[in-house]
């Protein structure tokens, strides 16, 4: 019975030396943090994908861009954010051009600089979106790469301790070493336990956010094309007049 008691996981954890206990604590915190981030990222990623799908459907439904801008209530994230940033800059520049003279057809040079400004505004919004999507992923990456080493450190420390006590014992049976080694190995197990979900989640979220950002960028290009076309058409029409 003594052997079984000493080999239970709870007993192994409570009997561990101080350093090993600290290592286990660190690993437990790592595991908690990584799972918090995994859940948080999973939720926000799924919502971002859903929002983007909804916004894209709305955008291509033939709705007037002014209406679309009005029905988006100060969007702060996703493709709607990119759209609003671009559209706001476009409107502001057009108003300034229009405000200076009554009906001045924007010259091709003015139109080009205006579109450049719009593009820049959208690029800023895009990079902000990118930062938002990959926000906590570096933490996941460092947890996934460091926690096996931390666990290994605990194991090495525990085994060192076991050998030190072994040198005092006259009779070195497997039974005297086994609990120590099992206790030390718990640290490695915990390190792997923290690392494996973090690695998987990091890879998954990285690829998902890359895919989403590429989709945003495509949308920005298309929106830019639409604005460009409208500017060119208007300048051509005003040139006719």
């Amino acid at each position: 019975m003594d052997v079984e008691d000493s080999m239970s996981i709870v007993a192994l954890v409570t009997n561990a030396s101080l350093v090993v206990k600290l290592v286990m604590l660190v690993l437990l915190v790592f595991s908690l943090v990584s799972w918090v981030l995994i859940f948080q990222r999973a939720i926000s990623m799924r919502r971002a994908e859903r929002d983007f799908a909804g916004f894209e459907a709305r955008f291509w439904s033939g709705i007037d861009l002014n209406d679309l801008n009005r029905e988006q209530p100060e969007a702060t994230e996703g493709a709607a954010h990119v759209f609003q940033a671009g559209f706001k800059a476009f409107n502001r520049l057009r108003a300034r051009l229009r405000g200076s003279e009554d009906q001045p057809p924007p010259t091709p040079k003015q139109a080009a600089s205006m579109l450049l400004e719009v593009e820049r505004a959208m690029r800023v919004a895009l990079s902000r979106e990118e930062a938002r999507l990959t926000h906590h992923l570096p933490i996941l990456a460092s947890i996934s790469s460091s926690s096996p080493y931390i666990g290994l450190f605990g194991t090495v420390w525990g085994i060192m301790g076991s050998f030190q006590t072994l040198s005092d014992a006259e009779q070195a049976t497997l039974a005297t070493v086994a609990p120590w080694i099992a206790e030390a190995l718990i640290a490695t197990a915990m390190g792997l336990f923290a690392a494996i979900p973090a690695v998987i989640a990091y890879n998954r979220f990285t690829s998902a956010s890359e895919r989403l950002i590429a989709a945003y960028r495509d949308f920005a290009e298309e929106f830019h094309t639409i604005l460009h076309r409208s500017v060119v058409a208007r300048s051509a029409a005003s040139a006719k007049v």
Binding site: I9, V10, L28, S31, L32, W35, V36, L37, I38, F39, Q40, I43, S44, T76, E77, R132, H135
Partner: peptide, 29 residues
């Protein structure tokens, strides 16, 4: 606004993660 909303968004993940770990420990026990 985004910072505020993100902090609010962390509540649920924290609860989920803590529940997950508690469940694992309970399963071991």
């Amino acid at each position: 606004m985004s910072r505020q909303s993100q902090e609010a968004k962390f509540k649920l993940p924290v609860i989920l993660a803590v529940l997950l770990h508690l469940g694992l420990v309970a399963a071991l026990l």
